[in-house]
Amino acid sequence: MTQDSRIIAGVYHLSKEFGRHFSLKDVSLQVSNGEIVFLVGPSGAGKSTLLKMIYMDDLPASGQVVVGPYVSSNMKRKTIPDLRRKMGIIFQDFRLLEDRNVFENVALAMKVTGMRMGEIKSRMTEILTRVGLYHKRYEYPRTMSGGEQQRVAIARAVANRPSILLADEPTGNLDPVATKNILELLFKINAGGTAVLMATHDINLVRSFGQRIIYLEAGSIVRDSEKIFVGDIRDRIEKSSVSESAERLAGHEITGEDEE
């Protein structure tokens, strides 16, 4: 399967059952080069599972996932590392190596590609400056705030200059200030040309950006803000639990302590 070269990642009629109670049902979406897209849905909707399919930690039972030149249906175990080097992935829990400092954590992504140390060092300066952590390059994750740790994770994710960054609830563990910083950083990275696909359960966090939002609910895409739906989609959305939780959340003030 080939896709339009302007599309960096595409999911086509993906279906798969996970256990008895959850399945992804005929999911299709496309992310263009340089685009920023939010994947929104309540907890348990399948956002993490769908992202997993995109970084091909799991393969579809039917349908296809295409990322750049990599197609899920003829993916081999050996080519997975190649795919991972061309995409950045960040999570709610940062996933840093606790026994390595910032430099070593970020360098790891470049080392696995066999990059020369000289090149790693010069890129490191650039990347760590971009995320504002150059002065903390010899610190260990446990001594840093959540927001800083997520910035380290972002630095690692973009180290190999990926064309797409997947972010699974990247602000889920962060206070409002850190959340704002991370979102700004993601936009900055996006402005540099990297496509971003970010999953979140919190619609209020992203609705004001005026960017494309894909709504996922119980394993199905119920709305893609760029697509024109046939039928009275508005009615469906209003009845869906996404909008319910959105309404609920809208009434809440975000509280939390400032970081740093």
């Binding site: 970084y55 590392p81 991972r84 996933r95 190596l97 790891l108 696995v112």
Partner: peptide, 8 residues
């Protein structure tokens, strides 16, 4: 994590 960053 090694798998995630593309280690062979």
């Amino acid at each position: 994590i090694l798998k995630l960053v593309g280690a062979t």
